[in-house]
Design a protein around this nucleic acid. Structure first.
Length: 556
RNA sequence: UGACCCAUGGUGUAACGGUAGCACUACAGAUUUUGGUUCUGUCUGUUAAGGUUCGAAUCCUUAUGGGUCAACCA
């Protein structure tokens, strides 16, 4: 995908070392293993780019495998959404689409193998008893009274568990490892539990389901995954996975852990995102304020910008919180090159050119100054215009370069104008500006010799169309809401601002659904699916960098 | 106070015993018919203390700080 940097991240170093040593014949095979119980977020995007990117870089393969071992939370709705997101990001798994549930029978056989070799037993204890005998990390656990059942009895019991002879929760299958291990995962972990739940793929075929720890590593092994890449919190599980590989004598996939992505001003855990959705603080998983891939897509991010972001953040083992500004930088960089420029006034103020007596005319404005091949377009111009309310200030400070009484600005692509009169209503609100123009300053044939400090955008009044602008801000008002238990307290109440009465140049009446726009001086925008009922709706992908807003903020 | 992991500018990330670099941010300036873009420049860093070495961000020890683990979740 993106050009590889000269320096390698630690996983690439391991892979190149493995290739040099001819490990697995130099084969590189990774996988992305989502659980279909929620939508993918930008943190998953990092993992997707890593796993699929590594396969591309080292001419290997990457599988898509759904870790669907818990039927109570999983659903096909999520399976489809996840596939859509990965494809949108630009990655392909060919026909290598797998499900942990595809391997249920083999996993069951693995369990029997452990039972027969005396390495697993059926435990009749309650979950409370199992938990309490495990003890805490600072003291040894105590062995279960069922721990020394003979293999043959365990086999019969486990078979009967599968046959549905026991009630849910009455028994589990556990590995027989070491109740005194300082690693909690080695204290006879549960391998199978009884669950009378319909599975989204296997239906009612099973009433026992493997635990993640008993499934994940073996699935990797079955698929011949060479480099099993996951996040840091699974580091303590690795000794257990290696124990399974050894006891079962199966393909030795090797796990490597990297630090998950955290983004400032947002949360990344599925649990927290689900809560935000369920409590109605956003419209849904693809609400553009969410950090999900679906939300970024709807907001107007490009796959390339997210891939580039993933490469900018790097891969390491240190906990991190990435500046939101890096993501924004990445999308601006991409959009600047491809977004068609349009003029839209979000908060319109009437402006009349009192000395402009023509019917009106067409002015020619470039579609993208960064891309000559994008050409130009004709824009209607007349004596009746709208400009941005905030581009006028009655008592302006000296560093305000836009319109002020007696001041001059250029109307983008048209004339230099002078503000002569401010018209107010009875309450003193400004309702109109009366200006005159300098005919010889017309863009393209300017021989006025006048230099102005500022160029502002505008739209012609009679041909303008009404559009709705949805302006987004960070979801949280604090930089690291993840660190707060009561993270919901820090939701930004102003994360969405809707401009219902924006005026746009006529061409935006029928926006191209896939086109990215830059509304000059306002930011990058993309049409929203809500646009159907006559009024076009645009999501602001990201603002433009704004030196003026920044300097204003400082003096406030 | 058990085990495992981590520690480089404001934020990320390089440097593999030999000049601490890159990106983002911030700041300053130039250019600009978007206070955008582009260009130039500036600020800020090896957690601490010992050791090994001609030489340590890098190796060792200890301390300190942070993270993960005690679901029949993944």
């Amino acid at each position: 995908m993106e050009d590889s940097k000269k320096t390698l991240n630690f996983i690439e170093e391991i892979i190149e070392e493995d290739i040099r040593n001819g490990k697995h014949g130099g084969r590189v095979h990774t996988r992305f293993p989502p659980e279909p119980n929620g939508y993918l977020h930008i943190g998953h995007a990092k993992s997707i780019c890593l796993n699929f990117g590594l396969a591309v870089k080292y001419k290997g393969k990457a599988n898509l495998r759904f870790d669907d071992t818990n039927p109570v939370t999983e659903d096909t709705e999520y399976v489809e959404a996840i596939k859509t997101d990965i494809r949108w990001l630009g990655f392909d798994w060919d026909d290598r689409e797998y499900f942990a549930s595809d391997y249920f029978e083999r996993l069951f056989q693995f369990a029997l193998q452990l039972i027969d070799s005396g390495k697993a037993y059926v435990d009749d204890s309650s979950s409370e008893d199992i938990a309490s005998l495990k003890k805490g990390p600072t003291e040894s656990g105590i062995e279960s009274p069922y721990r020394n059942r003979p293999p043959e009895e365990n086999r019969q019991l486990f078979l009967r568990m599968r046959a549905g002879e026991f009630p849910e929760g009455s028994r589990v299958l556990r590995a027989k490892i070491d109740m005194t291990s300082p690693n909690m995962h080695l204290r006879d972990p549960v391998l199978y539990r009884i669950l009378y739940k319909e599975h989204h793929r296997t239906g009612n075929k099973w009433c026992i389901y493997p635990m993640y720890d008993f499934a994940h590593g073996q699935c990797d092994s079955i698929e011949g995954i060479t480099h099993s890449i996951c996040t840091l919190e699974f580091e303590n599980h690795k000794p257990l996975y290696n124990w399974f590989i050894r006891e079962l004598g199966i393909f030795p996939s090797q796990q490597y852990e990297f630090a998950r992505l955290n983004l400032s001003y947002t949360v990344m855990s599925k649990r927290k995102l689900l809560k935000i959705v369920n409590e109605g603080l956003v419209e849904g998983w693809d609400d553009p304020r969410m950090p999900t891939i679906a939300a970024f897509r709807r907001k107007g991010y490009t796959p390339a910008s997210i891939r580039n972001f993933a490469s900018l953040v790097g891969v390491a083992k240190r906990d991190n919180v990435i500046d939101l500004s890096l993501l924004e930088h990445s999308v601006r960089e991409d959009l600047n090159k491809i977004a068609l420029r349009k003029m839209v006034v979000k908060d319109p103020l009437r402006l009349t050119l009192t000395d402009y007596n023509q019917e009106g005319e067409q002015v020619e404005i470039e579609n993208n100054p960064e891309d000559e091949s994008s050409g130009s377009r004709s824009v209607n111009f007349s004596r009746n215009l709208y400009i941005e309310r905030e581009d006028f200030m009655e008592n302006a400070p000296s560093n305000f370069f836009r319109l002020k009484p007696g001041g001059m600005v250029r109307l983008k692509g048209a004339y230099i104008i002078i503000c002569n009169k401010v018209v107010k209503d009875t309450q003193g609100h400004i309702v109109e500006l009366q200006c005159s123009h300098i005919p010889e300053s017309r863009s393209g044939s300017d021989h006025s010799g006048i230099k102005v400090k500022s160029t502002i955008h505008w739209v012609e009044a009679s041909t303008s169309v009404d559009v709705e602008l949805r302006l987004y801000d960070r979801l949280f008002s604090v930089e690291d809401p993840n660190s707060k238990d009561d993270f919901m307290q820090f939701i930004n109440p102003d994360s969405l601002k809707i401009e219902k009465y924006a005026k746009a140049e006529a061409s935006l009446m029928q926006p191209e659904p896939d086109q990215h726009y830059q509304f000059v001086r306002l930011g990058y925008f993309k049409s929203d699916p809500d646009s159907k009922s006559g009024v076009p709706v645009f999501n602001r992908t990201v603002t433009l960098k704004d030196g003026w807003a920044k300097s204003k903020q400082k003096t406030d």
